[in-house]
């Protein structure tokens, strides 16, 4: 058992989040996957803070949480207004920007 376990777990979680972004159509679920990716990064930050013996990693993880909160608020508002006009929360339906 070493800190490597945490880091590998974080990598796997990040990958699962990324794959979720790619395969899910529901915009809200896609958003959740992004949150999972942010969380996995936070785990690495906390782990490295412990490994290096400084608190800076934890502070940065704190900032990540704040930014994630702000992002969630704005992102969900955008999803709401798209849903209001499109009656759909599918990311595939917003595909006007193409060839």
């Amino acid at each position: 058992m070493s800190l490597t376990n945490y880091l590998v777990l974080a990598a796997v979680l990040f990958t699962i989040g990324a794959v979720g972004v790619l395969v899910r159509r529901n915009a809200i679920v896609v958003f959740m996957c992004i949150e999972l990716m942010l969380n996995s990064v936070n785990l690495t930050l906390v782990t490295f803070a412990r490994a290096t013996g400084t608190l800076d990693g934890q502070v940065i993880a704190f900032f990540v949480m704040v930014v994630a909160a702000a992002e969630v608020v704005v992102g969900l508002a955008i999803i709401m207004s798209i849903y209001r006009t499109r009656r759909s929360a599918s990311v595939d339906d917003a595909n006007l920007l193409k060839y």
């Binding site: 880091l7 412990r50 490994a51």
Partner: peptide
């Protein structure tokens, strides 16, 4: 990550 941190000492 595993290769880089397997011997990482924990401060």
């Amino acid at each position: 990550i595993a290769r880089a941190t397997q011997d990482l000492p924990v401060a």
